[in-house]
Nucleic acid binder design. Structure first.
Length: 637
RNA sequence: GCCGGCUUAGCUCAGUUGGCAGAGCAUCUGAUUUGUAAUCAGAGGGUCGGGGGUUCGAAUCCCUCAGCCGGCACCA
């Protein structure tokens, strides 16, 4: 006789085996209606699951995280059923839950159209109103393969063939539709929440670009209409922040057909870009780096030594000159850096050498990968290579991590996650070398008490790496910095140093990037701030605007005074009403608007209006300069 | 690179079954000299992404190339 313990500590005893649904009903009709699944002894099961022994049970509803997942998974099935009803020749494949929703991949000759999506959504609603029960069945593997083959579901059969032969499979049936699935699922289609099909895309069968392409339909699903609406609102918010849109509104940069994946920087955008470089440069100098610069175009020979020619030939821009030499635009800065290191003999006394370079690299990225500033073919890395002894390696790693984290904080990214990527399957170098490199990176992290997650097998082919992932204001993650330990390139380029005993030794090479691609980081900053850059980064910090022509000379003088103190100020002397100027400059996200009328001119003051509309009133020019200086030096928003 | 969609004035976008290319903002000219998110009036502005085809006639239908957008794959 089952004795069932509930989360609140109470226990219920039943005279015969009961289902999760029965237990929920015994607690209350409302709960029974809301129940989507149950957790029995830590395992999530359907509400139809029968309990015949003593257990603990938690009823899962859409208010539980697991409940929402089940809802989304069941919505994927709902969609597949609708698709099969409308387009019976379609084959189903897989339909997993993803963040905020789900997708389902279909195989079908004819492409789905956006109009089809509407029809599918309608059919889904119809199935919901039919309130079809969702039933679980168990089948042997071989029987299941036969079952799906007979239905013409070749893909499903192939998926099942990969499952061990002795395993029993669960199938879920809802009316005319049946799908292989681990489950659990909602008890009936009527219990679906609010959903919407969002986009149509191609996706390779089994995620491999050698395979045929399937059609993927994405959707989102939520317990209530209200939550669905909130989600759609969140998408709109992200769209508002889109750096491509913001960049156009603020006049920062442009793209052009003739140079796909290349940025045309406008004066204001380039000012921002320079601010980033200058800030990183200053912080690096303080941290003991030297800065260098190496050629953009170098002979193919150098890329053969580094191994890039063999590995990335088709992603490199190259050119043949009149005299039949083949040159390549640099896709990486390291070969140039090692070349500098190799100039002259190095002693152990010279190490560590921290060599930074704001190098512009060129990579022929696949056309489909290009995306605004986030993925371009020509970008500037705030790159550095640190040459040190094996003994110095761990300490140098610590210093890099410290510098990176502190710079991220200065840019307003306090939530930084670290990932440790260890040796990949295909790699060069022996295991003892990898042991050394991995333990140095890990040792640095551990000794600093930092938490990190593992990215197993995701290291570069020549060495393990630490990745710095920044979380932005609306919760998205961006991988920016990296730190890689490398003994391969020094070997390939035969870089050496004289050790204390006079012998010749191999230096360790640490590759590190701080913000990564400065183009991309500009995009991230714009989206993080929604275009409202803090005064220290704003390309124009203040615009001085006159009420009438009578104050034009004074306005120009104010701009001069501020510029002389290193501020980025402009004037707006157009013959327009003050409200019009304020509106325009506000849309350009200028942090401070300085309004000048006769009163201000006579008192040698400025009337200060903040971007958020706050009026700070009239103040002396110097008082405003101090205010702005404080904001800039504290990097306040 | 692959799948799907899109490309009309500087920007945002209308444009019916194939039948004279439009609006708002911006620009220019004039008036207005204005106090915290759009002053008024007038004018100019287009190879409808490029090329090819169907048709009496193409922004509209077909083919092709490019770019962009959403995914997939890729990201040293």
């Amino acid at each position: 006789m089952p004795q069932i313990k509930l989360p609140d500590g109470s226990e219920k005893r039943f005279e015969q085996p009961v289902t999760v649904h029965d237990v929920a009903e015994s607690i209350g009709a409302g709960l029974a209606k809301a129940a989507l699944a149950g957790e029995v002894d830590g395992r999530i099961v359907d509400t139809s699951h029968t309990i015949d022994g003593d257990t603990t049970l938690r009823i899962i509803t859409s208010r539980d995280e697991e409940g929402v997942e089940i809802l989304r998974h069941s919505t994927a099935h709902l969609m597949a059923q609708a698709v099969k009803r409308l387009y019976p020749e379609t084959q189903v494949t897989i339909g997993p839950v993803i963040e905020d929703g789900f997708y389902y991949d279909f195989a079908r000759e004819e492409p789905f159209t956006p109009e089809d999506l509407q029809a599918i959504e309608q059919e889904m609603n119809r199935i919901v109103s039919e309130d079809i029960p969702v039933e679980r069945e168990v089948m042997s593997r071989d029987k299941a393969i036969e079952f799906f083959r007979k239905q013409g579901e070749e893909y499903k059969a192939r998926i099942i063939e990969d499952i061990p032969a002795d395993e029993e499979l669960s199938l879920y049936r809802q009316g005319d539709f049946i799908d292989l699935c681990r489950g659990p699922h909602i008890p009936s289609t009527g219990k679906s929440g609010a959903f919407k099909l969002t986009k149509l895309a191609g996706a390779y069968w089994r995620g491999n670009s050698d395979n045929e392409m399937l059609q993927r339909i994405y959707g989102t699903a939520w317990p209530s209409k209200k939550e669905l609406k909130q989600y759609l609102h969140r998408l709109e918010e992200a769209e508002r922040r889109d750096h491509r849109k913001v960049g156009r509104q603020l006049g920062l940069f442009q793209f052009q057909e003739e140079a796909p994946g290349a940025v045309f920087w406008h004066p204001r955008g380039w000012t921002l870009f320079r601010s980033l470089i200058n800030f990183v440069r200053q912080r690096q100098e303080q941290a003991g780096y030297v800065e260098v610069n190496t050629p953009d175009v170098m002979d193919r020979r150098l890329w053969e030594i580094s191994g890039h020619w063999q590995n990335y030939r088709e992603h490199m821009f190259s050119t043949k000159t009149e005299d039949d030499r083949v040159f390549a635009l640099k896709p990486m800065n390291c070969p140039g850096s090692v070349s500098l290191y190799k100039q002259g003999l190095k002693s152990y006394r010279d190490l560590p050498i921290r060599m930074a370079e704001f190098g512009k690299v060129h990579r022929y990225e696949p056309s489909g990968a290009l995306h605004g500033l986030m993925r371009v073919r020509h970008f500037t890395q705030d790159d550095a290579h640190i040459y040190c002894t094996e003994e110095q390696m761990e300490e140098e790693c610590r210093k890099v991590i410290e510098l990176n984290l502190s710079v991220y904080r200065d840019f307003g990214f306090d939530d930084v996650r670290l990932k440790f990527a260890d040796r990949p399957e295909s790699r060069i170098g022996d295991d003892s070398t990898w042991d050394k490199l991995e333990s140095a990176l890990k040792g640095a992290l551990d000794s600093m008490g930092l938490e990190y997650t593992y990215n197993q097998g995701e290291g570069a082919f020549y060495g393990p790496k630490i990745e710095f992932v920044l979380r932005d204001a609306i919760g998205r993650d961006w991988q920016c910095g990296t730190l890689q330990a490398d003994l391969n390139l020094p070997e390939r380029f035969d870089a050496t140093y004289r050790s204390a005993d006079g012998g010749e030794k191999r230096p360790v090479m640490l590759h590190r990037a701080l913000l990564g691609s400065l183009e991309r980081f500009t995009g991230i900053l714009l989206e993080h701030h929604g275009g409202i850059l803090p005064p220290w980064l704003a390309p124009v910090q203040a615009v001085v605007m006159n009420i009438t022509d009578a104050q034009a000379d004074y306005a120009a003088e104010v701009v001069k005074i501020l510029s002389d103190q290193g501020f980025r100020a402009e004037s707006d002397l157009r013959n327009e009403k003050i409200g019009y100027k304020i509106r325009e400059r506000t849309l350009e996200k200028i942090p401070y608007l300085l309004v000048i009328g006769d009163r201000e001119r006579e008192n040698r003051q400025v009337a200060v209006r903040c971007l958020n509309g706050e009026d700070l009133g009239a103040m002396d020019i110097q008082a405003f300069a101090e205010l702005l200086r404080d904001k800039v030096s504290s990097r306040a928003s």
